Simulated assay, not measured.
Amino acid sequence: MADLHPLATHPPLDRTPDEETEAAWPDITGGLSVAPAQCFKILHPDLNNPPTRHWDEARAVFGLLV
């Protein structure tokens, strides 16, 4: 997954999200949490109960997209 540590040193943004953006957060976070799991069905369609190595693989693919 992408290294986010460099972002931690940046000062906070001086803008707050508008109401429309805040209202969309549940959909955005829901989509971001479901998408890596959907990678399993693409990468390994017959896989049930994926082991750690498959999670790592799905996170790596998803990390490229985010």
Rank of each mutant, 00 (worst) to 15 (best):
25 W>D: 06
18 D>C: 14
60 A>Q: 12
28 I>V: 15
55 W>Y: 07
55 W>K: 03
9 T>G: 03
27 D>W: 02
1 M>A: 10
59 R>Y: 03
43 L>M: 15
54 H>P: 01
58 A>W: 01
15 R>Q: 08
11 P>E: 01
2 A>K: 00
25 W>T: 09
51 P>F: 00
15 R>G: 01
38 Q>A: 14
11 P>K: 06
45 P>C: 10
63 G>W: 02
16 T>D: 11
12 P>A: 06
15 R>N: 02
61 V>R: 02
56 D>H: 13
8 A>G: 09
6 P>S: 01
44 H>I: 07
59 R>P: 05
17 P>S: 10
18 D>R: 08
35 A>C: 13
49 N>D: 15
18 D>H: 13
37 A>W: 14
51 P>G: 08
30 G>L: 06
1 M>E: 08
57 E>H: 07
41 K>M: 14
22 E>S: 13
41 K>R: 15
50 P>E: 00
52 T>V: 15
12 P>M: 04
39 C>W: 01
26 P>Q: 11
49 N>L: 14
10 H>N: 14
40 F>D: 07
32 L>T: 07
32 L>V: 04
63 G>N: 00
6 P>N: 05
8 A>K: 02
24 A>M: 14
39 C>S: 09
49 N>E: 14
41 K>G: 03
3 D>S: 06
10 H>I: 07
10 H>V: 05
54 H>G: 07
64 L>E: 08
57 E>D: 15
64 L>Q: 11
11 P>I: 08
27 D>I: 07
30 G>K: 09
24 A>C: 15
28 I>M: 09
34 V>H: 05
60 A>M: 02
53 R>D: 11
44 H>R: 04
20 E>M: 13
45 P>H: 05
40 F>T: 03
22 E>A: 10
46 D>I: 08
51 P>E: 09
8 A>T: 03
62 F>S: 05
3 D>C: 10
35 A>H: 05
26 P>G: 12
58 A>I: 04
31 G>T: 02
34 V>D: 00
49 N>Y: 09
43 L>D: 14
37 A>S: 15
58 A>C: 03
15 R>W: 00
57 E>A: 00
4 L>I: 12
5 H>K: 06
61 V>P: 06
7 L>Q: 05
1 M>Y: 08
6 P>K: 05
16 T>I: 12
48 N>V: 08
15 R>V: 00
15 R>K: 08
7 L>K: 02
51 P>T: 11
22 E>G: 06
52 T>Q: 14
15 R>D: 02
40 F>P: 00
10 H>P: 01
32 L>H: 13
62 F>V: 07
63 G>E: 02
47 L>M: 13
30 G>M: 01
19 E>T: 13
33 S>A: 12
2 A>E: 04
7 L>C: 09
28 I>W: 03
27 D>K: 07
3 D>T: 03
35 A>S: 13
66 V>T: 15
36 P>I: 02
11 P>Y: 02
33 S>I: 10
21 T>Y: 08
48 N>D: 15
43 L>W: 13
44 H>F: 15
7 L>V: 10
58 A>M: 00
4 L>N: 09
60 A>R: 10
33 S>M: 09
49 N>G: 13
